[in-house]
Amino acid sequence: MSKLRDALTVLCIGAFLITGAAAACVENKDPKESVQSLRAKSPTLRDKVRLRIGVRETLPFLSYRDPSTGIRSGFEVELARGIASDLGFTEEKIDWVPVTDVQSRMHVLQANQADIVVASLTMAPDRPVDFAGPYLVMPQAILVHKQRTKRVESIADLKAPDFKTCVGISSTSAKALEAKGIKPELVNDGLMCIDGMTSNKYDAYSSDLQVLASVLARDPDKFEILKLLVSDAEERIGVAVPQGDTALRDLVAYFLNRWLIGPQPSPWMRAYDRTIGPHLEAKYRSQPRVDKPPVLVDYDSKAQPR
């Protein structure tokens, strides 16, 4: 019995020593991939002290620049500011790059004129840029003149030869309408559709709901948004980054996801409530789930989660 007890004690002391050595191993373990280490891997961010962000300038509450003051506002502008801040760039270290149509939004990334683009770009896999997000999931909708609403009761009514529907070229709305046999008038920039709607050149304008909500907010007495299903699929709007820069994509996805799972109201929610949120239905007031957010550690990782 005594020998058994001795053996047990010796065994426990041996296990204690090994466990102590295991503790030393834990202590000396290298940290996992961190925000800082991933940031260093991004060719776009390497040695950058200023961040160039592509945004639009003509959509109030979504992405707008006041021509008289130069002040930028809107959901996408605030979202871009939040992402820039998380990446290490304060407001005064942001260079805003104006973008217009879909082609120009992708071109500024391809031509190295911008580092990220936050401009209602749908996360389509065939586009020559990479996406982090989505930060919005919205249906395609149709904006019409209030006085002409009676003419449009179904999507089929858009096929009428005298009914002019405007959409931006290369937009997903154009593809969706064409798939339903509707031949819209394609223009380079959605801005031309808005001008055409104001001047009564067009009867309808089809785009993502958040864009139309912005147009409607500017002139609620003249326009209205029809609750017609243009497409079965909803548009997943993401932050565009240069193709191949997976480090930057992952960083943006990480920050968007951290907003989603972190303390509320998150930067996303605050931006939404201050800008486009009041102009959209309540069902859209929740940040969508982010695609493949990476597991990273950061200096605040030890803080209490929500």
């Binding site: 925000v35 800082q36 940031r39 260093a40 961010l45 390497r46 040695d47 950058k48 002290v49 820039a84 801040s85 998380d86 990446l87 290490g88 760039f89 304060t90 270290k93 950061d298 200096y299 605040d300 030890k302 803080a303 209490q304």
Partner: peptide, 19 residues
């Protein structure tokens, strides 16, 4: 952390490190 739960990572810390 319970007394001061908020952790703030200042943007300057990230940018200055990489620079």
């Amino acid at each position: 952390r319970q007394v001061r739960p908020r952790v703030q990572v200042d943007p300057l810390c990230r940018i200055a490190k990489s620079a």
